[in-house]
Design a protein around this nucleic acid. Structure first.
Lengths: 114, 114
DNA sequence: TTGCAATATATAAGTAACTTAAATATACCA
DNA sequence: TGGTATATTTAAGTTACTTATATATTGCAA
């Protein structure tokens, strides 16, 4: 529904925010949660998600716990203290981004645009 | 201020929307308008903007008129009828994108998130 | 009169964040 | 036995940019 070009740069922020809200999640879970929250408008691909999770872990932003559920491995990710700081920063950027887009997309009719 | 990764996919939509609002603009003008509207939070680079304008023109989305102002060339861009249709579509996508991001970034505290 | 900032456009080369595709493995239902 | 859902991995390719450089005029200040 929403073209991937738009979503591209937001992946990291989305992942971090979900982990902040939910405490811990595994990769597959994250994709379903995003789909659910956005009513199917955003679907993360595994080829994008897992490498990002690995990167964030190696950067010390996320930590993992592996668990076995029904003979399937689940790798739970959660924020480190560094991760918590990063979310705060990323969310601030994201809100500024959304506000900026809205100023362009929904210009106030009362204000002269030209 | 806002990292370029976030803005990346939105460039075309931003350009098209500004042209819809303003009728016609030249490239340099577009960069200044975006900077003004977003209070400096979004700055378009010429290396991104001009190739996008050329592409949109060759796709029949934009048309041009060259004018001379103070011995400087200004190439004014405006929407073709194809361009007007495209803006409508792109703005719809953009609004869905913003709504989706807001659902993730500002989860309603009353609704269970987990 | 030199030199910088603003105005105005163009484009080649490089990069990063993805997409696409293929692989592996289990559970469950028809 | 065959498809759907669950769960993760990673290599190769793409694309929309960034970075850097080039060109040219105006106008202001040192």
């Amino acid at each position: 529904m929403i073209p991937t070009d738009l979503i591209k740069g937001s992946l990291k922020t989305i992942v971090l925010k979900l982990l902040e809200e939910n405490g811990r999640m595994y990769g597959y879970d994250i994709t379903r949660k995003v789909e659910e929250l956005t009513e199917g408008k955003i679907k993360l691909t595994y080829g994008a998600l897992y490498p990002v999770l690995h990167k964030l872990e190696s950067d010390g932003v996320l930590m993992t716990e592996s668990e076995n559920f029904n003979n399937r491995i689940r790798i739970y990710y959660s924020l480190t203290s560094k991760g918590h700081s990063l979310v705060t920063e990323k969310i601030k950027e994201m809100k500024e981004f959304i506000e900026s887009l809205e100023k362009i997309v929904n210009p106030l009719p009362g204000l002269s645009y030209a």
